[in-house]
Design a binder for these strands. Structure first.
Ligand SMILES: [Mn+2]
Ligand SMILES: [Mn+2]
Ligand SMILES: [Zn+2]
Ligand SMILES: [Zn+2]
Lengths: 139, 139
DNA sequence: TTATTATTGAAAACCATTTTCAATAAGTAT
DNA sequence: ATACTTATTGAAAATGGTTTTCAATAATAA
């Protein structure tokens, strides 16, 4: 995805393209780590001075509705957002700098089946997230 | 674990045993689903009328410090707590009634290794959580 | 250009959580 | 038992992140 693709998505869903929205989109789409509303606000403000924190919240809300961003749960808080992964992917987060990477290829079918049998639950989805140190931070 | 074991833990760490704390401990230890502070408050109040919501927050804080309870992250919110699992376990949650079950036996070593190689990250921990319908709710 | 109305930012409201504080009661020493 | 020390308590106030309100503005269509 790209900034222009995000703006196109917004436009295609009847949302107007404004300076404030462009600033938020550019900030979040380019970030390699999850950002909180305030962080987005501080960064977007450098691109569009007059932006209000309220507009950041409202724009994040719309981007989440369009599945362009997703909420990131972390030990320190669950209010951060990052550009959404494509297809079936999970997040790998650096515990030092927050650098995020998506990965796929997890196969939980066997585990899921075994647990369904043992517990009687019908399993519909799973959350998986890895934590560690990115290449830069482990050096 | 049991209610008395929790109370003993509190006592062993120098905390006094009070009616309010007993009510919170009994509520949370016996629950098979994650409870929010307000839910704990409403339930504990039936055992100890005079309890204040503030004391619920303070007691949950201590129980978490002692690793007797753990925070549960869910799509609807991340403010709920449940009796902590023992050893390496993960949660399986019913999307309908909230019924929680712990499971173990997940083996992510191969996946972890592969991702470390591919991404350059050093992976230290993982979060895994399953969602579905419990035996009662799927019927 | 003009008209329509979605969008905006400031201010106020909201609400979950935390802090303050004087009264109370658990644990200890007498 | 009784007195003493001080951790604990609940009420009230404060806090801080998020949401709502509202009149002004600006994006889009006519
Ligand atoms: Mn998966
Ligand atoms: Mn595991
Ligand atoms: Zn890093
Ligand atoms: Zn259920």
């Amino acid at each position: 995805m790209s900034v222009s693709a995000w703006l196109e998505q917004l436009h295609d869903h009847g949302y107007r393209l404004t300076g404030a929205r462009r600033a938020v989109v550019e900030t979040v789409e380019k970030s390699t780590r999850a950002l909180t509303p305030i962080e987005v606000y501080d960064m977007a403000r450098k691109k569009y001075r007059a932006i209000g924190l309220v507009t950041v919240y409202r724009t994040l809300e719309k981007l989440e509705e369009l599945h362009l961003i997703q909420r990131v749960h972390q030990p320190m808080g669950c209010q951060a957002f990052i550009a959404a992964g494509v297809g079936h992917q999970h997040l790998l987060l650096c515990q030092n700098c927050g650098q995020a990477a998506f990965f796929d290829g997890d196969d939980l079918d066997a585990l899921t089946k075994a647990i369904e049998k043992k517990t009687g639950y019908q399993i519909n989805e799973h959350w998986l997230q890895l934590f560690g140190l990115c290449a830069d931070c482990r050096a």
